[in-house]
Structure formats: C-alpha cells, structure tokens
Design a protein around this nucleic acid. Structure first.
Lengths: 211, 211
DNA sequence: GCAACTGGTGACACCGAGTGTCAAGGAATA
DNA sequence: TATTCCTTGACACTCGGTGTCACCAGTTGC
C-alpha cells in the first residue's frame, strides 16, 4: 500500500502539465500580446487539448494573474510572524518584501517575473484581474492587522485602509520596476514607497468616538 | 440651415435610447444578479436589438461601471479649483466629496446609486472594472497633485500614492455605505476615512535625494 | 416631387472564451 | 485478469462581442 506515494506521483504529474501549460502561455502572451493569442494557440504550443487548459486554469487571465496572486499566502504568513511590537509600517514593509526577495533570489525567474508584471500592467483586462485579486489580499492583511492592533475591522476603517496603503506601495514599486534593476534598486523603491505611507500607517489611532 | 439643432435632436434621440438601455439593464442586473442576466434579456426588456446594445455600450460591464466612471471629470475639476494653499488631504477630501454630494442632492437618484455601488462591490468582474477605471482617475489626480505641489510625477512617488490614498478612502466609504444612510452619515464616513490617510497626505515631502 | 446622401437599426454570420458531457485510455488495486 | 479511479480528448453548446450588409427615416440638392 503506497497510496500516499501514488497521490504524490499523480500530484507531480498534474504539476508537470500545469507548468507546461503555464510556460507555453506566458511565453506566447508576453511576446505577442494578451489579446492576439488565443487559447487554441496556447494549447497547440503545449501539445494538449483545449479542454485540458480549462481544467488547470479558470481562464486565460488566470494563467497570468495566478503568478502574482499566489504570493499572498507568503505575505500574510510573514506579517503574522513579525514581532508584535514592530510598528505597522515596518511589519508591512517586511511582509510585502517577501515576494520581491523571492524574485531576487532566483535571477532566472526574476526576469520572467518582471515580464509578467509588465504584461499585467500593460493589459487592461489583466490589470483589472490583478486589482481584483488584491481585494482578497487586502481583506486578509486587514484581518491580520486588526488582530495585531486589537481593533475591530468592522467598525474601524484603519485595518482595511492600512492594508490598502501597503498594497498601494507594492503597486507603485511594481510600476517603477525597470529592466536591469537589481536588488539594491528594488530595495530603494520599496523604502521610498513605504516612506510615503508610513506617517499614516504609524499614526496614533483616531478616537473611535469621532465616528 | 439648422444643422446644430439637427445634431442636437439626433443627440437627444441617441441619449434617449442609451437611457432606455441603461435603465433596463440596471433594473435587471440589480434585481437578478450580474451573471444570470444575459444581454439578450436586457435588449428584450428594452425592446431593441442585441446589436444596438453594443453600439451604445462597449460591454455588459460597461453599462454599470460607466455610472461611476463618469464622475471622474467632476472630481478633477474640483481639485483644480481648490485653493492652492489648502493641504492635500483637505483638497482631496473636497474633490472626492463632489460625486457623493451629487447623490445626496437627488434622493431619487441616490437610491439607485447605492444599489449600483452594491452591485459593483458584490460582483467580482464589476469590481475589477471599477478598480481599473480608478487607475485612470489616479493618473489624472496624480498629475493635478503634482502640479499643485510642484513635484515631478515621474521621479517622486508622492503624487501617485497620494491619489491612490484618496481613492482608497473613497472605496472605504462606498464599502461602508448602508441603506438608509443620510448625508450626515456619509460625511461622517468620509471624514473618518480621510482622517486615516491625512498624516501621509500632509506629511512633509521626503527628501528626493534618497532615491 | 424625386434622386442621392446620411445615420441609426436589425438580421445574420462569425470568432473566441468558457462549460457540460461522454467515451476512451492508463495506472493502481483486488 | 477484472475493476476502479483519474485524466484526457472530442464534441456540442451558451454567451459576450464584432463585422457586414441591407433597410428605413429624415435631409439635401435638383
């Protein structure tokens, strides 16, 4: 009986197919543009059937956006792991740095990540989906922040807005991400972006009786 | 020769058709949900052809989102009209209040506006489009802010992020907008949201030599 | 009054995204 | 070897969105 090993094998096979599909898709989409490449083109390049594509990805947009959306768990985990005494601006800066650091750790992946970011920012449909996935991040970050600060996320706007400001900083960094930027430059951009929102993130909480 | 009057007549006829389509669409979408209502349902209710719908609206999403997106010009105009000495948080708060005030001025429209906002926030595809249209707002607000503050929007992240924070405040207000809220309540929500971001909006500019 | 022109409309065909269904194949199990 | 489970491909279908063409109304020019 090796049912666990079997499931692992099946899992790896699935992962292999998903990777093949994703690689073919990203290559075509990034080089030719999102709108002109059809799903038929992608599956032809990957040597699979059209139906299989939609078994692995919910939509054409999903292939691209999942790349960034998957980072959310790491970010939340990191935020939860930051020392409670740390001011919100510092904790959030470290949490959102995690995916950026992951890019830098794998230079061969970094290039593709940057290309995907460019593709998303330049394609309205993808940009919209990316922002939509940020809504989920924001809710999760807000929940974590609320428990950190002992606030009620339903009555106090701070947690949600603090999360929104952190994601705004991330967005700003990504939009300024240029080809050839090294880790040094990325750190710089991140620091500057968080410096802008820090006064609001670390401000003493507004008196709740005002609202 | 009354070519101007003619064009005005044609214009009004077009407006009439567009209104008919929009009303039928909003009623169906708001009551039954965005996904279950097809364009065929809408044009059947409006008594027009499917093709005509797409001559007036770029997409099914467009009917709903245009409602909010059209407000952007008023906001930018108001921001440009605010006294230059006014701190950014105050100027932005007044600018973004314009569309909210417009809702309050027409109670019969206010109800529909709230329903549309609810529909957008509750429908992922619409929420994504709404955020996408906010990108345009943000760019325009950033340009206006940059000229107000004498900053270069390309090198300094402040204008873009300040605009983003203002829109974040608007988003927060809309999400907390409940049935039965009067102008008083809306003012309250707006004040609280802007109070959160104000420390960052009005902070002394970061030294540009840091980046 | 009649012909040409214009702009809006409906009908139709078409494409691409996405889904439901079913039969076939391949690997693990009894 | 027979059975079961999972994946896949093939096919048909819905729906959003577009291009095209013929039709009709109101206008312009003779």
């Amino acid at each position: 009986m090796r049912s666990r090993a079997d499931s692992s094998l099946a899992e790896r096979k699935r992962q292999l197919v998903a990777d093949e599909l994703r690689d073919a898709a990203l290559m075509l989409l990034a080089t030719k543009g999102f709108d002109v490449v059809t799903v038929d083109d992608i599956v032809a390049a990957a040597g699979m059937s059209r139906r299989t594509f939609f078994r692995y990805f919910a939509s054409k947009e999903d292939v691209v956006v999942r790349f960034l959306a998957d980072m959310s768990v790491d970010v939340i985990t990191e935020l939860a792991a930051r020392p409670p005494a740390e001011p919100p601006s510092v904790a959030l800066r470290h949490a959102l740095w995690v995916p950026l650091a992951a890019c830098n750790d794998h230079p061969e992946h970094s290039e593709r990540a940057r290309v995907v970011v460019r593709l998303i920012l330049d394609t309205p449909a993808l940009h919209a989906r990316w922002l939509e996935s940020q809504i989920q991040w924001r809710a999760e970050l807000a929940t974590e922040l609320a428990s950190r600060c002992g606030l009620d996320p339903h009555t106090d706007p701070y947690p949600r807005m603090a999360a929104g400001m952190a994601l705004l900083a991330l967005d700003t960094v990504l939009q300024q991400w240029q080809p050839g930027d090294d880790e040094q430059r990325l750190t710089e951009l991140t620091d500057r972006a968080f410096a802008v929102v820090a006064p609001a993130l670390d401000a003493p909480t507004t008196s709740p009786d005002a609202g």
